[in-house]
Amino acid sequence: MQGIILWEVRLPRVLLGVLVGAALAVSGTVMQGLFRNPLADPGIVGVSAGAGLGAITAIVLGSLLPIALRDSLGHFLIPVAAFFGGWVSVLLLYGVATHGGRTSVATMLLAGIALGALSGAVSGLMVYAADDQQLRDLTFWGLGSLAGATWAKVATAAPILLLAMAGAMTLGRGLNGLAFGEATALHLGIPVQRVKTLAILAVAAATGGAVAASGGIGFIGIVVPHLLRLATGPDHGPLLLNAALLGASLLLGADIFSRVIIAPAELPIGIVTAVLGAPVFLWILLRQRPMGDF
């Protein structure tokens, strides 16, 4: 009996936590490098909401898809839809907030708010259109927790998240260059366009995969890179790898905490990460110097 619990319940949950935590931290790191700002986090600037909209749309309207397409995607339908939702969000955000290689922080945050609100509103509309079974799926998914972890879920999330992280790990030099602005990055020999495209895809896949697997778990993407920059400096080479490790550990820790603090009941993990992360976010805002407005 204990063996079954360990194998069927605990282990997939741990694995999903590791994958999702690492992916969230890495996507935050990449996004901050891309936008050249420590406040750019998929959760804060509406990318997670966009991915969520993609996932909800897939749950509610997935039945309208041609059967051939639905069958070929199988379990991957929801994460792929979340990836597209996230992708469109980052593209929109980057297009609005960045001009001539410079990102305006104010525009980025405001556009992120608008994007998040819009995605949230459309997601709300989708809920109206859902039937009973879909509503159950949505509620289950929207809990934003690792509680629903199964081997099937791990198997679906793993390829997407691992691919996204592998892609992100190649971006160290490129993101370091982008910290100087696009022109200097080019002079340093960095293929700027390719780096930006890959960064946007990696953020979308990591965020989309994580959101599809566990709903919106916030603040990992902002806390982890920030702590690491304080510890080891802003060099993206070590930063990306360390972010994956610390993100995995942090989410795992938060998950354990959420299970034991009011046992036998369970605290939604999003609450734990928010309590941890929101103060850090405010702290960065306070410390932000004028130079941060790149």
Partner: peptide
């Protein structure tokens, strides 16, 4: 860009850097 980076360095009129 990549081939040029080995041959020449460029000092822009102004440079702002993200991250400390």
């Amino acid at each position: 860009a990549t081939a040029l980076a080995a041959r020449r360095g460029v000092l822009p009129q102004a440079t702002r850097i993200a991250f400390p």
